[in-house]
Design a protein around this nucleic acid. Sequence first.
DNA 1: CTAAAGATGATACACTATCTCATATGAAGT
DNA 2: ACTTCATATGAGATAGTGTATCATCTTTAG
Lengths: 149, 149
Amino acid sequence: MKSTDRMDIKNERLKFERHLKEKGLRLTTGRQIVFDEVMHAHGHFAPEELVKQCHQNKRRVSRATIYRSINELLEAGVIRKTAFGEKHQHFEHIYDEKPHHHAKCLHCGSYIEFPDLGEDKVYKPYLEKEGFQVIGHEMHFYGICRKCQ
Amino acid sequence: MKSTDRMDIKNERLKFERHLKEKGLRLTTGRQIVFDEVMHAHGHFAPEELVKQCHQNKRRVSRATIYRSINELLEAGVIRKTAFGEKHQHFEHIYDEKPHHHAKCLHCGSYIEFPDLGEDKVYKPYLEKEGFQVIGHEMHFYGICRKCQ
DNA sequence: CTAAAGATGATACACTATCTCATATGAAGT
DNA sequence: ACTTCATATGAGATAGTGTATCATCTTTAG
């Protein structure tokens, strides 16, 4: 773990607390557990994976609380959706990560990440001209990964 | 309906038939119905919407057949997935459409389309250097649409 | 006309996510 | 500490989407 990571996590924690305060919600044990597990999830995760992970780590949180907390983390901007045509939701935490996109292998389902090169900003003026206020974007590539060729 | 549309649909039909033949499947009444309804769906559609649409139009096809046919249409390259973080699958037909992407309003859920400007091709060399064979890509913008501001 | 391959529909099933509601918990005031 | 009240939680019910099963029907080939 890099020396900066603890700072990053602390930052995310503050973001989360701020969000909860704004909504008049409490930072409870359950929410802390979910926060921690999310931060220690390796990159991407699906809610059900997190449920299993919590169960394995003997964290006592119900599925309902996990789902609810994930939504708060999402609203707080600590995690984001990375949907990719799957039948379930998919998230990743934002801390420690540089802007990047994903390429998914249609054969084995694995994905690789690649940096945001910024070219997509060309689209922004176009959308703004249409009156659309851009908040964010994702790029999804799909194809065949090195191993599956 | 433009004069070219009938040609386009015919083309898609041929594509579909070719695919079925390759797999040793038949172009049955059920599959024709689904093909027609998909072609006449206004742009995007979710499977369940198509089920309702068929029902309203008094087309006698079961949900199972609809889902199965959608998958064949997908494999045939007549439609494509346009997942956008929803909890259900989402498709659009390809005929008559120029390469484009989607921007979704986080408030009302509506989306607008905008043309593919081709900038994303900058990413291709990068991915190929990683040994990833690119088949396609999508860009997803999200934000607030004109009406919701 | 028959046999074999394939297609269909009704239903059961699996999975994900949300909702409900009774109970538990935490914060603030006394 | 004690009480009060808003908020949080867990267990289970529920909703929604998509897939699997299997008996029955249809098409095609011979």
